[in-house]
Amino acid sequence: MDNYLIDREALGQFIDGLMKQKPLPANTPEDLNTLRENAIKELDDRLGLAIFGSLSEEQLNQINQLLDDPAATPEAFQQFFTSAGLDLQKIISDTMTAFGKEFLGGQNE
């Protein structure tokens, strides 16, 4: 497993799109790559925290049990979030929207 919760390529493309609008400050390609990677990592963290931060403690316990089950299928996770009344798609979209706004806004300030 990689050290990302979310599809890293997808996050990278999202960040790349932001960077095209507001380039990150870097003097070398290596610096730029580091900044990009940090942004990907931060977005990944935010998405993870937004997803699990939306759960109550009881729900956290429940999903931890599910995560501990090696036989848990993707469908089981989908079922969990549906039962929990959480719209994962919306959480993800919200988080990315907020991140994008902050990313671009932060560079304007």
């Binding site: 599809d7 699990f52 993707p74």
Partner: peptide, 30 residues
């Protein structure tokens, strides 16, 4: 607890599959 859960989720294929699909659907990759 949240941090612990995230770390677990990072190593859980089923969960990552679900989220990857949603993310890709969210941003319309190209």
């Amino acid at each position: 607890k949240i941090r612990e859960t995230i770390n677990k989720a990072k190593n859980t294929r089923g969960f990552k599959i679900v989220v990857a699909g949603l993310l890709v659907a969210s941003i319309g990759l190209s």
